[in-house]
C-alpha cells in the first residue's frame, strides 16, 4: 500500500465519521458504557488486589500462652520468636493487659466483665512479619513448632484469612474475565454494526470506486480506520470518565462506619494503555468483520 494514500484514507475515514455522526455517536456511546463497566471492574480488582497485597506484607500472628506459664518458658518462646527471620515481637500482652484491652474495647459495656471471678484471658505475644514473601509454608511449620513448646496454648495467624480472601480474589478475577469477555463481544457487535451502517450509507460511492478501478483494499482501509478511530476514542473517553470518577471518589476518603478503609488507586499506566489498545483493536476487528463481505462488483 502506497504511503501517499494514507492521508487520503484518514481524510475519508474522518469524513465518513462526520457524515454519519448520529450512528457513530450512538456506537461510541455504547462502546464507552461497555468499557466503563469493564474499567470499573478492573479498578475494583486492582484495589482489592493492592489491599490484599498490603495486608499480606504485614502478616501478623498471636501466640497465646497457657495460664501459669513460668518465666523461663516464656523467655524461651520469646527467644524462639526472635530467631525467626523477618519476625518481630510487636508487644507482649499480659493477662491483665488483655483484660484491660477488652474493657477498653467494650467501652460502656465493660461492666459486664465485673462479674468475673477469674481473668479468663491468656497472656500473648503479638508478632508481625516484615515480608510475607516465601513465608506461607514457614508459618505452618512455625505454628507447629510453637504449639509444641512448653507454655504455649494456641497460635493464630492472618495467613488463613489471607488464603480465603485470595480464593475470593480468584473468583472475582474469573467473574471479571467472563464479564470482560462478554463486553468485548458486545463491543465487537456494536462496532461491526456501526461500520455496516456506514457501508450501507456509502454503497453508491463504493460501487463507483470499484467501477473506476479501486482495489478492495483501497475501499476497505478507510472503513478499518473508521473502526479503529471509533475504538480509540471510546477507550480514551472511557478512561477520562473513569479518571474523573476516581478523582471525585478519592477526594472523599472512603469510610466505613467512620473508619477510613483504604486509599483508592487508579488503574496502573499499563492497564490504562491496555484498555485503549484493546478498544482500538476491537474497533479494528469489528470493522474488519463488517467489511469482510463486500459487494461483488
Amino acid at each position: 500500500m502506497r504511503l501517499r494514500l494514507w492521508p487520503y484514507f484518514f481524510k475519508q475515514a474522518l469524513m465518513n465519521i462526520m457524515g454519519n455522526r448520529t450512528v457513530h455517536v450512538i456506537g461510541l456511546g455504547t462502546m464507552v458504557v461497555s468499557l466503563l463497566i469493564f474499567g470499573t471492574f478492573l479498578i475494583l480488582f486492582v484495589n482489592l488486589d493492592s489491599w490484599i497485597q498490603g495486608w499480606g506484607r504485614s502478616l501478623s500472628a498471636s501466640i497465646y500462652l497457657q495460664d501459669g506459664v513460668n518465666e523461663a518458658d516464656r523467655d524461651k518462646v520469646a527467644d524462639f520468636i526472635r530467631d525467626i527471620p523477618g519476625a518481630q515481637i510487636k508487644r507482649f500482652i499480659s493477662k491483665e493487659g488483655a483484660l484491660r484491652d477488652l474493657r477498653k474495647a467494650l467501652g460502656s459495656e465493660s461492666g459486664l466483665l465485673d462479674g468475673l471471678s477469674d481473668n479468663p484471658l491468656p497472656a500473648s505475644f503479638e508478632l508481625v512479619f516484615e515480608d510475607a514473601d516465601g513465608q506461607a509454608r514457614d508459618l505452618q511449620d512455625i505454628k507447629r513448632e510453637l504449639e509444641g513448646m512448653e507454655g504455649v496454648g494456641e497460635v493464630q495467624y492472618s495467613e488463613e484469612w489471607l488464603k480465603r480472601i485470595e480464593g475470593l480474589m480468584s473468583l472475582v478475577g474469573l467473574v471479571g474475565f467472563i464479564i470482560g469477555g462478554l463486553l468485548c463481544l458486545g463491543v465487537l457487535f456494536i462496532v461491526t454494526n456501526t461500520i455496516k451502517l456506514t457501508i450501507y450509507a456509502r454503497r453508491d460511492e463504493i460501487e463507483i470506486l470499484k467501477l473506476v478501478g479501486a482495489t478492495d483494499r483501497f475501499v476497505k482501509v478507510p472503513f478499518l480506520l473508521e473502526g479503529a478511530i471509533q475504538g480509540m476514542f471510546a477507550g480514551l473517553i472511557a478512561l477520562l470518565i473513569l479518571f474523573s470518577g476516581y478523582l471525585l471518589l478519592s477526594a472523599k476518603k472512603i469510610q466505613f462506619f467512620g473508619v477510613a478503609l483504604f486509599d483508592l488507586l487508579f488503574l496502573p499506566r499499563e492497564y490504562a494503555f491496555a484498555i485503549i489498545l484493546m478498544s482500538l483493536g476491537l474497533g479494528l476487528v469489528g470493522s474488519f468483520i463488517a467489511v469482510g463481505r463486500f459487494f461483488e462488483i
Binding site: R2, Y8, I208
Partner: peptide, 24 residues
C-alpha cells in the same frame, strides 16, 4: 452518470486518479 452527489465536480473526476495512487 453515476456521479457522487456529495462530492464536487473536481472530486468526482479526481476519484478515478486517487484509486491509482498517483501523487496529489
Amino acid at each position: 452518470f453515476k456521479l457522487l452527489a456529495k462530492k464536487t465536480v473536481f472530486e468526482n473526476v479526481a476519484l478515478a486518479l486517487y484509486v491509482t495512487g498517483k501523487g496529489r
